[in-house]
Amino acid sequence: MTFYLKNIFNEAGNITLFTLRFFKALTEPAFQFREFVRQCFAVGYKTLPLISITGFIMGLVLTIQSRPTLLKFGAESWLPSMVSLSLIREIAPVITALICAGKIASGIGAELGSMKVTEQIDAMEVSAINPYKYLVVTRILATTLMVPLLVIYADFIGVYGGYIGYNIHGSMSLFRYFSEVLEHLEYLDFMPAFIKTFFFGFFIGLIGSYKGFNASNGTASVGIAANEAVVAASLSVFIIDMMAVQLTDLFF
């Protein structure tokens, strides 16, 4: 039991130091811009198809599932705005973040883990290249920037899926559907949900890098790093989400 607790505190301490190192490295010059762009591209490219499919299905299914209930209350006209609200406020951010946790965090964990194990990170260090700056900072920044963009994309795809779902039984033009949605959408529906996605992105990059960078020696640890990265990143998404929702609830 004490061993278990000691491990948790150790890990928490290490990850805090790792985070502090990120902010310190940010302030130092010689930012690796090209590597950053390359990572942004990798993040978007890897997840775009997955997010398109899941976003679309979420919007579609949610509409189909909600229709009977709303019909009962004779409130079918609320369907577009209600579905879009739950999509934009909660479902799209969380689903997108979970997909990124599965795809990106594990990818970063495995990539950095194998670089660590095959001494590539050591090779950078002896060439006086700061591996933290080159590998970690660029990846964390890339996920922090790209996850929010992917969420906005998922919002649109989800609403579009809702439109398709709506038209299975009803008939409404795409333009009408979108104006219906936008009419009921307020600044406060969108903004808190959007802000939390930066935190999702930050933690996905941070946890993936942390696990990979700290892989011990031996090829087995690469798999472990990737696996732990997914688990920890997914968990952190839910925890951040819970805190974000409570904070929003408190202040607005």
């Binding site: 990539e111 194998s114 670089m115 090779a123």
Partner: peptide, 20 residues
Amino acid sequence: LNAIRVRIGFMFQNGALYDS
């Protein structure tokens, strides 16, 4: 330390080439 390292070449036992 880096100021010293740039004057040293280091060849790793297993190569350690950047595989990407």
